[in-house]
Design a protein around this nucleic acid. Structure first.
Length: 499
RNA sequence: GGGCCUGUAACUCAGUGGUAGAGUAUCUGCCUUUUAAGCAGAGAGCCGAUGGUUCGAAUCCAUCCAGGCUCGCCA
């Protein structure tokens, strides 16, 4: 009887056996002197020096033959083989070795040597149990092929299990850790870049009594003492602008935002967003900042200004292309939308058998055309400029043509990576635009902005001309790690409750 | 939300109406330089869930749950 429950029972019985042998299954201390990557990196020295080493880690595989055996031990830095002979370790330790299961943490003391077949190993003289594993790890065997690549058998590959039990994913697919290392490196490169340029990192409220700064439905939660509902922020924008008004000329926040929308390959309900504001800058300055920042991150992580995504080489060396939305629609749809006539735009939709969005004016219709015809084509980094004012309630209008605003989005590999504008700082215009959004809301657009009187009041005190930027960190990490699913770059992505 | 696909042992998967299978893992025995160790044997499953059709269902039908791809929605 070796069902799942029986497995657990058998391992619990081993705990009793260990107790009878006076062996603690969960000792408080270990005495590691060397990490495995250290041993691997200095093979010749350890073999020649016959130095005693104490390593610790998780038992990865075990091959026992009568009165001797081999096992693989893994710690954070690598795997090394242990060789254990009854003659060397004594009867009790060898009995312990026989009781060990895959997944147990052990400490091994001994010297390094080469086996008969030439494998670099530790000849164990002392073996200590550090922590007993009660649950059987999935079986993954590896074979190192002649060309050095590792062939894996019965890989732990079930996507759902990998996300729900990420610890097993990291343990059984150790190369997965690289994704999260790159994520950390990317974030720290961005911080370094902004800090060096005098930007102040701040933290603003996650719980807000009004939400704004983006078009999205919020999560709602309840504060019991105040008996009030709060919204989880959908953007940090309105608070960061208050700080610019308060005299912090360069400010940024990198943090979780929450949007109550659909989940798919590129959307997780909670995601990490960077927002940056720079007083006395406009969207052209922000384009330069963005370009330098991303290029610098690539340099820090890859040592070169390019990356490969889904087989496409993305060239990050500048300057990146800048093209207006209308220009790109002309280029990819062969259509001149500069007339801004909603009826003619709808006719073009019909001609291409596309459904125009509800409640849409010409600006929205143009933006949707862009999304449909152009976004997937923008593989190399491209700043898309001159968005219709109608779809940009927080951006400053262009002085030469007020149908447009001073705004850009950055596209790389068909993904929207950044959104930025010369921020609106005219409080009267801002009120008009927020009220227009509120009107859309009354028409049933649940993602339209609400009017934030406190924010408007702050702006009435005066806000300098300011350039602002938002970057979806998760999507950038997808690019940098060659992943097409946001779930691969978030350690614990949102999943439905198991039914 | 629509379409397509998937769900069988701890892992990876066969099995399309007639007694639930394989390899690995596990357990027992042998084996003191193995390496996807080997040899011999054993155990292990509510076939995602619930209903239905049938003498009989992992298999056919319906509904539901979970996941993937895709379309729509979505800064």
């Amino acid at each position: 009887m070796h069902s799942d429950n029986e497995m657990l029972r058998m391992r619990r019985e081993k705990l009793d056996t260990l107790a009878d042998m006076n062996i603690s299954a969960y000792p408080a201390r270990s005495a590691r002197t060397h990490t495995i990557d250290n041993l691997l990196a200095n093979e010749d020295a350890y073999i020649a020096g016959e130095e005693r080493v104490i390593i610790a880690g998780r038992l990865n595989s075990k091959r026992r033959m009568g009165k001797a055996g081999f096992a693989n031990l893994r710690d954070a830095g690598g795997v090394i083989q242990l060789f254990i002979r009854k003659n060397d370790v004594g009867n009790d330790a060898y009995e312990l070795f026989k009781l060990l299961d895959l997944g147990d943490f052990v400490q091994a003391e001994g010297t390094c040597f080469h086996t008969r077949t030439g494998e670099y190993s530790v000849k164990v003289e002392k073996l200590v149990l550090l922590s007993k594993s009660l649950r059987m790890l999935p079986t993954v065997k590896e074979q190192v092929l002649e060309d050095g690549t590792v062939k894996r058998f019965d890989e732990f590959a079930d996507i759902e299990l990998r996300y729900r039990k990420r610890y097993l994913d990291l343990l059984l697919n150790p190369e997965r850790r690289r994704t999260f290392e790159v994520r950390a490196q990317f974030i720290s490169a961005i911080r370094r870049f902004l800090d060096e340029r005098g930007f102040l990192e701040v933290e603003t409220p996650v719980l807000q009594s009004l939400y704004g700064g983006a078009n999205a439905r919020p999560f709602v939660t309840h504060h019991h003492t105040l008996d009030t509902d709060f919204f989880l922020r959908i953007a940090t924008e309105l608070y960061l602008k208050r700080l610019v008004i308060g005299g912090i000329e360069r400010v940024y926040e990198m943090g979780k935002n929450f949007r109550n929308e659909g989940m798919d390959r590129t959307h997780n309900p909670e995601f990490t967003l960077l927002e940056v504001y720079q007083a006395y800058a406009d969207y052209n300055d922000i384009m330069e900042l963005t370009e330098e920042m991303i290029r610098m991150a690539a340099q820090a992580i890859f040592g070169e200004e390019r990356l490969t995504f889904q087989g496409e080489v993305i060239e990050l060396a500048g300057p990146w292309r800048r093209a207006s939305m209308l220009e790109l629609i002309q280029e990819h749809a062969g259509y001149d939308a500069s007339h801004f006539d909603a009826d003619r735009l709808r006719a073009f939709y019909k001609q291409h058998e596309l459904e125009p969005p509800a409640h849409a004016g010409p600006g929205k219709l143009i933006e949707e055309l862009f999304a449909h015809f152009c976004e997937p084509k923008l593989v190399q980094p491209t700043f898309v400029t001159d968005f219709p004012r109608e779809v940009s309630p927080l951006a400053k209008r262009r002085e030469d043509d007020d149908r447009f605003v001073e705004r850009f989005e950055l596209y790389i590999a068909g993904y929207e990576c950044a959104n930025a504008f010369s921020e609106l700082n005219d409080p009267i215009d801002q009120r008009t635009r927020l009220e227009a959004q509120a009107a859309l809301r009354d028409l049933g657009d649940l993602e339209a902005n609400v009017v934030d009187e406190d924010f408007l009041e702050a702006m009435e005190y005066g806000m300098p001309p300011t350039g602002g930027l938002g970057i979806g960190i998760d999507r950038m990490v997808m690019l940098f790690t060659d992943n097409v699913s946001i779930k691969e770059v978030i350690l614990f992505p949102q999943m439905k409750r198991e039914g």
